[in-house]
């Protein structure tokens, strides 16, 4: 039995609407994420993907259930995880290199070494020449790359990524996905990756987890994706086995997406 880095047991999370109604976003979420594996979570918009990541990050308390990180019950912030947020989260008053080195700085690492390492990461994510730029001077894709370096530089055991490439064009996206896979393969870190793009999920992951439509969203399918690695992201989508995975998972996901459409029409 391999090491489990994140173990979610019967997680549920409820929200109280401004009118005082209780809304169950997710429930009965149980999931083991093996050390070093790349797991994607897919599901219709608003089903609770970010909620699950927020709880795993320790930023949000579960209403029910427990989270274990490398066997230890999670209390407060998850110190072994980095989090690449769905929204823009760079600090606008810090330069690119200042943002990238922030994690090291906050951990009290030597300033000079941190700066050197951060500059290496600037190059690594293709931001050469932009080290001293401020976030507002970067394009959306460049900001995402800086955020990526910011999350990976601290060598976390777990990386949480919430639709990191949602707003990017196809080409930039393909490049960034490649970079993520390379980083992941080099580091042996555990990745929990949220996306609503099934192709992206299959292309990148060892395992794809499908969530049902909310409210009360839960896991309705788990698929191991044993396509060989290293993967060629440009060609992988035309491979026959990729198609098989896609059809199998899509038949599950499709139902949930349709349900979520119906519910939003009713509302």
């Amino acid at each position: 039995m391999s090491i489990v880095s994140v173990k979610l047991t019967n997680l549920a999370r409820r929200f109280v609407s401004p009118k005082g109604n209780r809304y169950t976003a997710v429930q009965n979420i149980s999931l083991d994420v093996g050390k070093g594996s790349f797991v994607s979570i897919v599901g219709p918009s608003g089903c609770g993907k970010s909620t699950i990541l927020n709880m795993t990050a320790g930023l949000m308390e579960p209403s029910e259930g427990t989270i274990h990180v490398f066997g230890e019950r999670l209390k407060g912030i998850n110190r072994r995880a980095s989090y690449m947020f769905q929204q823009d989260a760079l600090l606008p008053w810090k330069t690119v290199v200042g943002n990238i080195e922030l994690g090291l700085h906050l951990r009290g690492k030597d300033a000079k070494e941190s700066r050197e390492l951060a500059l290496q990461w600037v190059d690594r994510v293709g931001l050469k020449g932009f080290a001293d730029s401020y976030p507002y001077q970067l394009s959306g894709g460049m900001r995402k790359r800086a955020a990526m370096a910011q999350a990976w530089i601290v060598k976390p055991d777990i990386v949480l990524m919430d639709e990191p490439f949602g707003a990017l064009d196809v080409h930039t996206r393909l490049r960034m996905e490649g970079e993520i896979l390379r980083l992941w393969a080099e580091s042996g870190e555990t990745v929990m990756f949220v996306t609503h793009d099934l192709e992206e999920a299959i292309a990148l992951s060892d395992e794809v987890v499908v969530l049902s439509a909310g409210p009360g969203s839960t896991i309705v399918g788990q698929y191991g994706v044993d396509l060989p690695r290293p993967r060629n992201l440009i060609d992988i989508k035309t491979e026959p086995r990729f198609g098989e995975f896609y059809r199998a998972i899509w038949s599950d996901l499709r139902k949930e997406v349709l349900k979520s459409y119906e519910r939003s029409d009713e509302a």
Partner: peptide, 12 residues
């Protein structure tokens, strides 16, 4: 989100 980000990066 900026607060959460700094927290996740280890800010006291």
């Amino acid at each position: 989100v900026q607060l959460d980000n700094a927290r996740m990066l280890g800010a006291s």
